[in-house]
Design a protein around this nucleic acid. Structure first.
Lengths: 241, 241
DNA sequence: CGGGCGATTGACGGAGGTCAAGTTTAGTGG
DNA sequence: CCACTAAACTTGACCTCCGTCAATCGCCCG
């Protein structure tokens, strides 16, 4: 009985959503088939290379998106040209700042990113009507808030080496959504400059601390981007728990 | 006609809510009279002195609250005893972290704080049923997220003097909810240690930077706690815009 | 092969943390 | 009202960490 209803429903959902990675984890899981159909009509898939500016800080936004794969960095620019990365988003996160004319942060693809894009008005309209959808959005913003505050501690209190270790720990636990625990092989989708922006350091300090961790045989680095964590306990100690 | 209905409604709302400061700005403004009545039945007003621990990080929470007056600081503790203040809340903010068994942050009264406390289960139940209420909660979390990211920039990129200036600007625009713009007389509800924790500095550095601003005649300080902004443009320049 | 970008490494200096007096403020008891 | 005290704040001396500047190396791509 339950399965039959499921089948009827799944046959009613849009074709693009059938095999979608964000269908179950993302905000779409809060939608009824009819709603999914409505949003699906306006949704468009898009794949963008690393470095693509998805949202510009201060500029009006007229689309939102789900992240299907890849990493998006949220940045804030300072008048002098420096930038601070204020958040990272992974699949199947929702990308956008609902109910504000413009975003106060910029969003840039940190790796090749696949998105499911839909018009702003459509989603906001649906959020106003669908309580489960808004609940889902709310839950994500609470998670982002927890993350942001976690990073405030790192930015405010930790030394350069602790920042680096914390950063690697974060990546290991988030970068591969298929692995549940900690993944000890990390392909950095960032340059040293990005890491520096994220941690509030300079590229030189990032570089120095990475070589320090390598010399201590806590990590190994190949071709600048491929990091393997050799000694996980030591890394947590470095991070200052 | 409209006024008559208003009067009927207002006579149906709980007595405690009649004259409530949070009635219109806070989450209660999203509630129907019947809902207000339900929540009001379980609500209790409470006044606590500065320093009272309202929520302990990691411990389960069974109540939420509206802030009626005063300032609440949200803190995160490090293993070594240092702390980072990750947020400030003012009236009529909602205080709590819905849909999580425990809070990842601690909440401490930074001044005398008056609260309207209600049971956790009651509010979560209502949020599940009332879309406008959840929308209100969502809107606040988005605002907090924006604030948190704003502070990440300050923590990550700014110098000690810029941090102090930014801090004073923040306070001037938030501390007195009755003043709409910038209030140039600020009664700090904090010790230097609190300010240091907020800015990721030490008390000595905070003290030095404050005397520097005083010597530059940008601010004046009386009896440690009473700050007057003498030169607002200069303060914004100090803050690095 | 050479130009360019990113990363590494070194030398140096300054901002801010640490340690250690003093000073002011607020609270307490006589 | 005035000592006395504790806590909060200020100020100074010193030193460390990290940012700045600069040279070099390694890799990729034309």
């Amino acid at each position: 009985m339950g399965t039959i209803r499921q089948d009827i429903h799944s046959s009613a959902i849009p074709v693009v959503c059938r095999e979608c990675e964000a269908r179950h984890g993302g905000i779409c899981s809060a939608l009824e088939p009819a709603e999914l159909l409505r949003l699906g009509r306006h949704a468009r898939r898009r794949e963008v290379p690393a470095g693509t500016e998805l949202v510009s800080a201060g500029l009006p936004v007229d689309t939102y998106a789900n992240i299907l794969s890849g990493v998006v960095k949220l940045t804030k620019l300072l008048p002098d040209g420096r930038q601070q990365i204020v958040g990272l988003q992974f699949a199947p996160d929702f990308l956008g700042r609902p109910f504000a004319g413009s975003s106060s942060v910029g969003a840039v693809a940190a790796s090749t990113v696949r998105l499911c894009v839909f018009p702003r008005a459509e989603l906001e309209d649906m959020a106003r009507q669908s309580h489960p959808l808004e609940h889902r959005l709310y839950a994500q913003s609470l998670r982002e808030l927890d993350d942001a505050r976690e990073w405030m501690v790192i930015l405010g209190q930790k030394s350069a080496s602790q920042k680096l270790a914390s950063f690697l720990l974060l990546l290991g636990t988030h970068i591969d959504p298929t692995v549940d625990g900690f993944s000890d092989v990390i392909d950095l989708p960032w340059t040293r400059a990005d890491i520096a922006d994220f941690l509030g350091l300079t590229i030189e300090t990032v570089s120095r601390q990475l070589t320090r961790l390598r010399n201590a045989e806590i990590i190994s680095i190949e071709k600048n981007r491929h990091v393997t964590v050799l000694n996980y306990p030591a890394l947590t100690t470095e991070a200052g728990i």
